[in-house]
Simulated scan of single mutants.
Amino acid sequence: MTYFQFQNPWMFLLLLLIPWLVFQHGRNRPAAFPFSSLATLQRTTPSHVRLLAQVPLILHCLAVVLIVIALARPQEGRKSTEILTHGVDIMLALDTSGSMQAMDFKKQNQPVDRLTIVKDVVSEFVDGREFDRIGMVVFGEEAFTQCPLTLDHNILQEFLKRLDIGVAGDSTAIGSALAIAVKRLKDLESKSKVIILLTDGRNNSGSISPLQAAEIAATFGIKIYTVGVGTRDKAPFMVDGLLGRRFVMQNVEMDEKSLREIAEATGGKYFRATDTDSLKKIYGQIDQLEKSEVKWIDHSEFKELFPFFLIPGLLLLVTEIALAQTRLRRIP
């Protein structure tokens, strides 16, 4: 990464001298001719006289600006970071089944569907894990890898933004989602391998049971945190009716027992989020439980640029003095 900086930026305060120099120039101007002879004056129009009279001041001010920039020590360089130890490898398994349409969460005091809040909270979680490789599995009736493990979190965030309800079908294949996440993590050599499973239902699709997938994860040292989202009992759904769109209360069954067993089988933990605040707190807790201890070394190389400003500044100063003593000399 290239960068440009000033080592002593406070030196720019010296630029405040320029208005003072201009003021002093106008105040102390003597009644004199800025030419070395009257013959020169006769060949010069009044407008040229006024312009030439300002040349020493202009050169002086430019010289001051360049010298001040030089004193601020401009530097151009390159910076690179060498990571010595890797962080945590995390696979996010997100439920996008039809039940995620339930509007029992709020955003800015307005009811929104569950997936909208999940995307916001997960996005904040990803932002806080700078040195961790994170990937994403999406599941409904089917399960697939939406984003492989990556340190480029911008790509992951783009995939997360485009996530829609029903993209993988309306059912819930929890076991399949866990199996795919395990496959992505099992052969990696990392300090810690984690799956964060988020769902609002029960496993009703796929060919592998959630507990079987959890047992396989445990053999590879993969820890699973499970998060159940949604209010208890009935939840409001927006449906189209003869009189327009309206809320209808429907039951959404969540298998909390299985989610708890999945977490316990792998040394993880089960959480239940019934509103936006509790979901944020849950991901905050997981963030603390799986802290990365990353060590890195910053390599910086820079080149001093002050000579490119100091030398022209001094040349302008010498030129201003030379002109003031020759062609633009003032005669008392």
Rank of each mutant, 00 (worst) to 15 (best):
Q285Y: 14
K269P: 09
I321L: 13
Q250D: 00
Y270T: 04
I311D: 07
K234S: 10
V229R: 05
T226Q: 11
G230M: 08
R272K: 01
I282Y: 15
K280Q: 10
Q288F: 10
L314V: 10
D255K: 05
H299C: 04
E293D: 09
Y270L: 10
I286M: 08
P312K: 02
K257G: 07
K257F: 08
H299T: 03
S292E: 02
L243C: 01
V252W: 00
S278Q: 12
M249I: 05
D240E: 15
K257R: 11
V248C: 11
R260K: 15
A265C: 07
K281W: 08
L310S: 00
G313F: 05
G228M: 08
V248S: 12
D240Q: 13
D255M: 03
L314C: 02
L315K: 06
T266L: 07
L310K: 01
K280T: 10
G267R: 01
R245G: 03
F302D: 09
R246P: 11
K257H: 07
I297Q: 09
E256S: 11
M254Q: 14
Y270F: 15
R246Q: 14
G228P: 02
G241Q: 09
R245F: 05
V252C: 04
I262M: 12
K303I: 06
D277L: 11
R272S: 10
F309M: 01
P312H: 01
T231W: 08
D287T: 04
I297Y: 08
D277S: 15
F247Y: 15
V294I: 01
K295V: 00
E253H: 14
V294P: 04
P236R: 03
D233M: 10
V252N: 07
P307R: 06
E293C: 00
E256L: 09
G244S: 01
Y270C: 03
F302Q: 13
G267A: 04
Y283D: 04
G228S: 05
R246N: 07
P236T: 01
M254V: 12
K291Y: 13
R272E: 02
D298Y: 04
T276N: 08
W296I: 00
V318Y: 00
L315A: 01
G267W: 02
R260C: 11
I262H: 10
D287W: 04
F308P: 04
L243A: 11
K269W: 13
K281V: 06
M238I: 09
I311S: 13
S258L: 08
R245E: 10
D255F: 03
Y283P: 06
D298W: 07
K269L: 13
V252Y: 05
L314D: 02
P307K: 04
T266A: 13
R245H: 12
I321C: 08
K257E: 06
L243R: 14
A273F: 11
G230I: 06
L279G: 12
Y270D: 01
L314K: 00
K269V: 09
T274D: 11
K281L: 09
G284K: 01
L242C: 06
K291S: 13
D275K: 05
